[in-house]
């Protein structure tokens, strides 16, 4: 995974609260291998009418080039399905701006180079207002934690460790390998103190 510091692209408003993972990617697509890309599945049912035609009124259908999404609160609540993040990433989204995120979604996002940027309720509302009707060019700076849209400059919150991971494109497995000997020592002690953790050994 490649790291990044600054991203400039088109910001689009999806003014919905609680866009949960079942909406981000309906379950029926999750048996697909990733190779062909998950972009087509993003918000599949929300973007279409009952006959499966793209609804021209849905924001994402007007500007599919958007790479920065400004959304309502509790974005990505629900299941642990990382496929919700794959759908966003494969559709070219690099940052999602919201007042709050589902916890598992946010860590899944960071593991895939997608920024979950948290803003205050007031800033979130102001951004949705500014973007209502039309997408705009915007830029996100991971280092300074700022989002710039037109004349607006908004501070977003991001966990320090996540910032470093996103900037460096780091994978946790690489980081963890450095603690291999700690893990081995821990495992030995655990085995000694709590042998029942190893289920086949207490019979």
């Amino acid at each position: 995974m490649e790291g990044w510091r600054i991203h400039t692209g088109t910001a689009l408003a999806l003014p919905f609260d609680n866009l949960d993972t079942d909406q981000l990617i309906p379950a029926r697509f999750m048996s697909q291998p990733r190779d062909a890309g998950y972009d087509d599945f993003l918000l599949y049912d929300m973007r279409r009418d009952a006959h499966g035609n793209l609804d021209p009124g849905f924001p994402l259908n007007c500007d599919s080039q958007a790479s920065i999404l400004v959304v309502g609160r509790n974005f990505g609540s629900g299941s642990s399905r990382e496929a919700a993040v794959y759908a966003l990433v494969d559709a070219g989204v690099r940052a999602v701006i919201a007042p709050s995120f589902g916890d598992i979604f946010a860590s899944n996002a960071v593991n895939n180079g997608l920024l979950p940027a948290r803003v205050s309720d007031a800033d979130g509302a102001a951004l949705l207002m500014a973007l209502s009707g039309k997408p705009e060019s915007a830029s996100v700076d991971l280092e300074t934690g700022r989002l710039m849209i037109g004349t607006m400059s908004i501070q977003f919150a991001l966990d320090g460790a996540w910032r470093i991971k996103l900037i460096n494109g780091w994978d946790d497995i690489d980081l963890t390998q450095r603690h291999q000997s700690d893990i081995q020592t821990f495992s030995k002690t655990r085995r000694h103190n709590a042998p029942w953790v190893w289920p086949h050994e207490t019979h």
Partner: peptide, 30 residues
């Protein structure tokens, strides 16, 4: 799976994780 919290009923620290994290646990048991 997000409903891993179920197992907390036993006084366990149980939580759901995403696919990258599943791969991490498989590889490192942490």
């Amino acid at each position: 799976d997000s409903h891993t919290s179920t197992h907390g009923a036993f006084g366990a620290l149980a939580f759901g994780i995403g696919a990258t994290e599943v791969a991490h646990v498989l590889a490192t048991q942490t």
